[in-house]
Design a binder for these strands. Structure first.
Length: 588
DNA sequence: AGCCATGCACCG
DNA sequence: CGGTGCATGGCT
């Protein structure tokens, strides 16, 4: 079983997916030469000026280290980059033409890693690097990494029993640490391979090639790549040994697991759970797997709050913030979903087949993808309906009367949230009635509007560093928070499309509530602390000056949490270099 | 026009 | 004859 604590524990290594290559017949053939996409080779492998190149040490998924000769041939006025001596490696992986090899780098060591993906199956075919604790960066370096990253994610999913760290702290865009691989030369490769190249592979390989053209995108854009927690949820699956209960409702299949799996923000140390009896919120360790039915008595982690008679851990203000975050978060989430969709090259069959949703380049336009989520055939990456959010690969629609764990949890939490919201609203109205009767009609709206102004003129210096794409997402923050009466009157729709709510209708979906209920409340509720954290990390960047009580500030932090915190870290770690397109990979 | 899969000549 | 380096041509 996955331990999220371990999953997100501190590790000093981060895996940076680099690129992938669909093996051609030539690549998989007995010649032992793997043609590298030129852009990938120049971007991610050490620069070579001589055709002889240099040996590259690359560790495969089993931990075995291979040494390939990375070199090029003059070709016309250009170069053809190849890896020589790949045959034994490809043999050991039992790869053939059409299969995909992925290249990654483990930082800060700079160690090169390679994985693979079989073309014949969408299923998991490999284990992730098993020799030592590793981690995935939550932020691939740039867009073309997507497919490679998906391969790694697939790798990860194949090793769900192991502890893998997801960390973005050590990401260092543009920093190529090749010294290790270059210093350790020597070839140990030879052998043969049996090719069986499907005709279609040509086209697929070309797709990879076309993607590689985007390798050298602005490094700043690369910083915008990140993996949202929703997509992280995609990575989390119950162990294979866990068999879901399959239920068919309205011709749709459901998978229900005993536990409702959900992931918490690793940057948070807690999650929130609500008592089934008293509806109080309790703070729980982040790695606690919340069962569908939970009461204060189950709060074994904090005996001082293991009784319904003990006051709520959740303060009214926190709850208030939670609601105010809702709409904005949906906007952000929707925008992220679109970016995910854009990031999916529609011609990349493998990526589609994998259904890996990765928040990719935020600004680069791309062809609309037809890729669906792994959760629901009609949904798309970024969809945040209950089906797609449901971590354990839930399928199909949940109808309003569904009593599955997920729905029950959401409904329960929704109920309590509604109660609290109503209570708070009535309190406020009563208070306002004493002050000014004229405020009756638009109290809530006024309050909301005061919190939902578009981006302030004064901008956090750190935000100025961000790309326009993120600014765009940020600009979507002019949200319209649903008002409680509308929520109350609305039909709960577990399958509402996220975008649909942005139309401003009174329609409210369970999706938004699920976001509140399923995602760690700490993410929403600890803005101040996180704001402080950001301030600390950025030192004298000036963000400390932001009033922590400002909702917009909170909202930005909220967005940062979901989309930009890693980028902030990058900016902190590499303040200058990352603002320029990376040229280190260029040939000298 | 550039990339890349693959053909093929040359060389040991 | 197999490996190496380069050339060719399809494809985008």
């Amino acid at each position: 079983m996955i331990s999220l604590t371990n999953f997100f524990s501190s590790s000093n290594s981060t895996i940076i997916p680099l690129f992938e290559k669909v093996l051609s017949a030539s690549d998989a053939g007995r010649i032992g030469r793997l043609v590298l996409p030129k852009a990938c080779a120049e971007a991610y492998f050490p620069p070579i000026s001589q055709p002889e190149g240099l040996p590259l040490r690359i560790q495969d998924v089993k931990g075995k280290e291979w040494v390939f000769q990375f070199r090029f041939w003059p070709n016309n006025n250009s170069r053809m980059y190849v890896l020589e001596g790949v045959t034994p490696c490809i043999q050991s992986m039992q790869l053939q033409a059409g299969d995909t090899v992925t290249f990654s780098r483990m930082d800060p060591e700079g160690k090169l890693l390679m994985g693979f993906r079989k073309a014949s199956t969408v299923k998991i075919t490999q284990n992730v690097f098993s020799t030592e604790p590793t981690s995935f960066s939550a932020m691939p370096e740039n867009l073309p990494l997507m497919s490679g990253y998906s391969g790694l994610l697939q790798s990860f999913k194949g090793s769900r029993e192991s502890s893998v760290n997801l960390s973005s702290k050590h990401f260092n865009s543009g920093d190529f640490s090749w010294y290790l691989t270059e210093k350790n030369g020597g070839r140990n490769a030879d052998g043969a391979f049996s090719p069986s190249m499907p005709v279609s592979e040509r086209k697929r390989s070309r797709n990879i090639g076309s993607k590689s053209k985007r390798l050298l995108i602005d490094a700043h854009d690369a910083l915008e790549l990140k993996l949202s927690w929703e997509e992280l949820q995609d990575m989390l699956r119950p162990p294979l040994s866990v068999q879901p209960t399959t239920v068919t409702i309205e011709d749709q299949e459901f998978e229900e697991y005993e536990f409702y799996w959900y992931i918490t923000d690793p940057r948070e140390q807690e999650q929130w759970a609500q008592c089934d009896n008293c509806f109080k919120w309790r703070k729980l360790p982040a790695d606690y797997l919340l069962p569908p039915h939970w009461t204060c008595q189950d709060n074994i982690s904090d005996h001082s709050r293991s009784s319904c008679s003990i006051p709520d851990d959740l303060t009214p203000r926190e709850l208030e913030n939670l609601f105010k975050m809702d709409k904005d978060f949906k906007k952000q989430r929707s925008a992220a979903g679109q970016r995910i969709t854009q990031a999916h090259d529609s011609s990349d069959l493998d990526s589609q087949a994998n259904g890996i949703s990765i928040a990719g380049d935020l600004g680069e336009p791309g062809p609309a993808s037809v890729a669906t989520t792994t959760k629901h055939p009609r949904h798309r990456p970024g969809c945040s309906c209950i089906v797609c959010i449901q971590p354990p690969s839930g399928k199909g629609k949940h109808n309003p009367t569904c009593t599955c764990n997920v729905c029950m949890t959401v409904k329960r939490r929704f109920k309590t949230l509604m109660m609290r919201k109503k209570k708070r609203q009535s309190e406020r109205e009563a208070e306002l009635g004493q002050r000014n009767q004229l405020m009756w009609s638009s109290k809530e709206e006024t309050e909301v509007d005061s919190f939902s102004r578009p981006v302030k003129p004064e901008v956090d210096p750190s935000e100025k560093e961000r790309s326009g794409s993120e600014t765009l997402a940020r600009g979507h923050s002019s949200y319209q928070l649903q008002k409680l009466p509308e929520i109350s009157k609305s039909q709960l729709d577990l399958n509402c499309h996220p975008n649909r709510e942005d139309t401003g209708s009174s329609h409210i979906s369970m999706m938004s509530l699920l976001q509140q209920a399923c995602l760690p409340l700490e993410t929403y509720l600890r803005q101040n602390g996180l704001t402080s954290l950001v301030s600390e990390q950025q030192g004298s960047s000036g963000s400390q000056g932001l009033p922590q009580d400002t909702r917009e500030s909170d909202l930005r932090v909220q967005e940062d949490l979901c989309l930009a915190s890693t980028a902030q870290e990058q900016e902190k770690d590499v303040p200058k270099e990352n603002s320029e397109p990376d040229q280190t990979g260029k040939d000298q």
